[in-house]
Design a protein around this nucleic acid. Structure first.
Lengths: 336, 336
DNA sequence: CTGAAAGCGCTTACAG
DNA sequence: CTGAAAGCGCTTACAG
């Protein structure tokens, strides 16, 4: 194969027999040009195998059509699904995502943010690592980097996330309606806004019903949750409001392991409704927040922010729904 | 806050009292300069709040230190973990990843590849969508885009993935050693290299033992696998070699649902050893391939390819190990 | 180490 | 629509 000279706009212009500026406009499908001219140029570009070079355009225009996505833990199915939603919506808008998985490290988060700033990206979408100081927002503002938080957030700034309080409140009230009185909250060892809000929704529902809240601490980990559930005494809580579906999965596994049937012996409700929840045994009753939709909404919020940085930051709180399946015991398939 | 003029290298040079070219070299920590000079410049840059602009460097040097990652399905925990490994290793090497989740769509895969080419990226790492024609490699070669496949691959080209045949062979031989004679393969409805290889390893072990292979088809989906397992007749297979852990999870859930205990009534072995496998009930016996390690290895293979495009493409096939837990029935915790 | 300069491939404003 | 030109912020080669 002969050495191929890289094809540039000026080559396309020559091939099409138009001026360089005309070719440049035509390649971006500018309506200032007649459709016929645009087609002429497009055809010439295709004949020559022209490849648009974004790096030059980025430098000249300052717009990269790239956004930086900081994910706190991509191996968590909830965040993986959310990432898919972000990527999907940004792609539709002609944007591309630079991914960084911080693995809950604020050092790594900081470093990746600086890297994004150099890149440069047009904006950043952040699922803050646990322990992120709110001063992060001040830095981003000073840097003039358009930004928005997702799921985990701060008191201010553009944000998209589920209504966590409403979610655990609904879950708790459902269990109360089923007659449970000793209902514990399982999880929440990690200190972030999501943990606080989910605990808070449960707490309020319990105190409103005149009952004592009770927290069973565990990290967000199937194995750890299974351990706590397995060790649950027979005269312990009869129902568990779990921090999320992973914790709920762990709880059901632990109960099974100790010879108890989730839903019949101890009711279990999750949070998130990740893909596996419906197929679980027993099928998991959970609070649906649709990570993919949150991701898509977050992408829109950030794009708005980029388009109009002067506007007040939007905060979009999505309402959750309770999906009643088997693990809460409301209708046991195997009860017979 | 007053309008801030963007700080450029020439401003840093002036502040440090050195030439522009010296400042440029110092900022990249070039050893041609005395350490003292480099520090002088670094301090000046810090004082002024200088931010390196990569887009200009990319354009001038043609190197973006960015690689494009095409993931077939990011919401699959295996690929999510693999993505984390890729991102981790590339970050250590000073590279950043542009992510595209193709969701198994070859149209989307094609579009994202063209987008990456325009970006431009220094190379692409591909987990091909099911149905990708091998001609993809020819296109990439013609485009002169350094590339490597991961997990799913073709007969040629740089590749990193587990030894799928060895994996299912080990699983099958383990079940044979436990005395099973009617062993079925569950899964493999999707047609790609992984499916073929895993089926093949099982097939060879069975025929070598003089037994009839048997395929229970289902897509890679917990719900579908659960349905097949639930409907398994009492005089059916006594052991299942599953396409992957998700399918195995589905199988155990389906068996439980039909009143059978996985491991005691029907043995189940998975593939991948994703995070949830150890915490499962019963704990899943599975073939460990360590997606994070595959991801890290794949990143290295691609970086080698970028560094030396003339070298023969490397193919790195990682040996799997069988992790014996409970679901195969080799040592039942609850038997005693 | 200096200093002036060319060049990467676009975008964009402008006179015609 | 043309055509010549400036400029984005780096990198790099070069004579001194």
């Amino acid at each position: 194969m002969p050495f191929m000279q890289r094809i540039r706009i000026k080559d396309v212009a020559k091939e099409a027999g138009v001026a360089l500026s005309t070719a440049a406009l035509a390649l971006r499908d500018d309506t200032k040009l007649r459709e016929e001219t645009r087609r002429l140029v497009r055809d010439a570009a295709a004949r020559l195998g022209y490849v648009y070079d974004r790096s030059a355009a980025v430098m000249r225009s300052g717009k990269s059509h790239t956004i930086g996505l900081l994910v706190c833990e991509i191996t968590n199915p909830f965040y993986a699904e959310l990432t898919a939603g972000v990527e999907e919506a940004l792609d539709e808008a002609g944007f591309v995502v630079m991914l960084a998985n911080t693995s809950e490290s604020i050092t790594r988060q900081r470093r990746m943010l600086e890297r994004f700033r150099e890149q440069p990206v047009d904006g950043v979408l952040i699922m803050p690592a646990t322990g992120t100081p709110p001063s992060l927002l001040e830095d981003l503002e000073q840097w003039r980097v358009p930004h928005a938080t997702v799921v985990r957030g701060f008191r201010r700034g553009a944000h998209t996330g589920p209504d966590n309080r409403a979610g655990t409140r609904m879950a708790t009230e459902h269990l109360l309606a089923l007659g449970h009185r000793r209902i514990a909250f399982l999880g929440g060892l990690t200190r972030n806004s999501v943990s606080r809000e989910r605990w808070d929704g449960y707490f309020r529902a319990m105190t409103k019903a005149g009952l004592a809240p009770e927290q069973l601490c565990c990290r967000t980990d199937i194995g750890e949750a299974a351990g706590v559930a397995e060790a649950l005494p027979a005269d312990g809580p009869t129902a568990l409001v779990c921090f999320n579906d992973s914790v709920a999965f762990g709880a059901t596994l632990g109960l099974l392991r100790s010879g108890r049937m989730p839903g019949r012996d101890v009711a279990v409700i999750g949070f998130d409704d990740i893909r596996e929840a419906a197929a679980w045994f027993p099928a998991l009753t959970t609070v649906r927040v649709s990570p993919r939709e949150i991701g898509r909404a977050a992408a829109r919020v950030l794009l708005e922010r980029i388009a109009d940085p002067a506007a007040a930051p939007r905060r979009e709180i999505l309402a959750p729904t309770l999906v009643v399946r088997e693990s809460c015991g409301a209708h046991l398939r195997w009860k017979g």
